[in-house]
Design a protein around this nucleic acid. Structure first.
Ligand SMILES: NC(=O)c1ccc[n+]([C@@H]2O[C@H](COP(=O)([O-])OP(=O)(O)OC[C@H]3O[C@@H](n4cnc5c(N)ncnc54)[C@H](O)[C@@H]3O)[C@@H](O)[C@H]2O)c1
Ligand SMILES: NC(=O)c1ccc[n+]([C@@H]2O[C@H](COP(=O)([O-])OP(=O)(O)OC[C@H]3O[C@@H](n4cnc5c(N)ncnc54)[C@H](O)[C@@H]3O)[C@@H](O)[C@H]2O)c1
Lengths: 224, 224
DNA sequence: AGGAGCTTGTGCATTCGATCACGAAGTCGG
DNA sequence: CCGACTTCGTGATCGAATGCACAAGCTCCT
């Protein structure tokens, strides 16, 4: 869902999309248990921590290659290293944030990304009042310089937090700068060339989904 | 994904979860075309605007009841009304935001919710420095008062934007206040009683998923 | 050494969602 | 009124994902 253009030609093993989406959850759970000096976890325990089924955990991990020991469980450190490697968290990911409004500033100030190898490397805005200001310790560059600055700084992931009507133009600039992964917060449909991954986060949609189910619950059987 | 405890007993027609998740997208697309004084849309056109398959659009809309005219398409106004009704956007949804940090403030300041019937009705934070301050035109109440204030103001949707370690306690308070829909931004696994809908937005997970696919692309076949 | 007790890895059935393909039903021009 | 054309509604098919159930494999105790 939301993601297209996955690894077309199977790199080594093909990992199902649903599994990929759970790897970060396992990763976080493993970091937690590693902090408590636990050396092994069972699929049962990990499933509980991640809020999923134990069989699913085992099947998911089996896609990464086999690292569990029957009768014992998984070695936490080893599994952590394996997931890290597969998620590419051993790399350094330069991230650019475009649109330093309410949301963009919150993202720029967020201190939770660095821990996972993500580093905010560039900030862009079109508003002259914002350009040149410091946000989260980094200077805001003009939106017109996206192509030059983003490619120069080796940005690989772009985050779009602009109003929706300029989102496509921003995406085009990011792609032109060599960015091939985009996370879009603007409620707009973006089209990107093949080979570029695109994911969307839409808060209004989330609320509306909640509203749907709650409506159903409140009015269980109209005219029943 | 992420959603559980849907309408257990089929209210009238059972609408698949995947369809529910697309209704807000159709809704937004329809609002756009309605602005341009277009009176009907075909499933093809709507599919294009929503970025999905045309057959999927038709099947999705068929779950709401039949409102299209063969040979013509769908009446925009009528369809808009129908989706509005199904998503419960005709109601007034009182929303509470808990945790007025970077993210919570961005949400509180956001002017895009009101348009869809969502109204921020209460703000909560545990930090004495924040309590009593105005954010987005509303005063921040103490976190200790969640149960009293949220239920008094008829809050139906709770947004959690606190640090992860207090998220469960906040969720419990919200549920105790009668909130039965929760949107969680904290990277923590929450458990809620049956009958409460829970959705999660996890930005770090989104980035990690992007990183995964990009890693695969950059290193297509190590040792090739 | 041998067996009891766990826990993994995976084949299989089932459920869910996406897409195709086509009959049904409407419009419109003559 | 009729036939060509458009577009909907949906049965059928296909593929992905989930979860069960159990054999295989490891550890540890006796
Ligand atoms: N703030 C929220 O809580 C929230 C919630 C849901 C969705 N969103 C969406 O996220 C996006 C950002 O929201 P926001 O509240 O931060 O909006 P905002 O208006 O506060 O910020 C938008 C920023 O983008 C900048 N900008 C405009 N055009 C630009 C361009 N061409 N290039 C670069 N920057 C440009 C503006 O100068 C501004 O700083 C919007 O699309 C909004 O719909 C926000
Ligand atoms: N800011 C981001 O861009 C971002 C990105 C990804 C995830 N998140 C997650 O969203 C959540 C909020 O992020 P943030 O950057 O706004 O954090 P923040 O630290 O800026 O804000 C957290 C707020 O919660 C308040 N709080 C603490 N305990 C509370 C309690 N018991 N009841 C009510 N309020 C309480 C704090 O006083 C603070 O105001 C965090 O869980 C974070 O991991 C944020």
């Amino acid at each position: 869902m939301g993601h297209d253009s996955a690894g077309t030609d199977g790199a080594s093993r093909r990992i199902p999309e649903a599994t990929v989406a759970r790897l970060p959850i396992y990763y976080r759970a493993l970091v937690d248990v590693a902090d408590r000096d636990v050396t092994t976890v069972s699929s049962d325990r990990l499933a509980e921590l991640a809020g999923v089924n134990a069989a699913k955990v085992r099947k998911d991990l089996s896609y990464l290659g086999t690292y569990g020991t029957r009768g014992v469980g998984y070695d936490v450190k080893q599994l952590l290293a394996e997931i890290s490697r597969d998620l590419g968290l051993t790399h350094d990911w330069a991230v650019a944030i475009v649109g330093l409004g309410h949301l963009g500033q919150a993202l720029a100030d967020y201190r939770g990304f660095g821990a996972r190898g993500f580093r905010v490397a560039a900030l862009f805005d079109a508003d002259p009042a914002k350009i040149g200001r410091q946000v989260g310790g980094l200077e805001v560059s003009p939106a017109a310089s996206i192509r030059a600055v983003a490619s120069e700084r080796g940005v690989r992931i772009g985050i779009i937090a602009t109003p929706p009507h300029v989102a496509q133009a921003v995406a085009d600039d990011l792609v032109a700068a060599g960015v091939s992964s985009i996370l879009n917060f603007a409620p707009a449909l973006l089209s990107v060339p093949g080979g570029v991954s695109l994911r969307k986060v839409d808060l209004a949609v989330e609320l509306q989904i909640l509203a749907f189910y709650q409506s159903r619950r409140s009015v269980p059987a109209a005219g029943g």
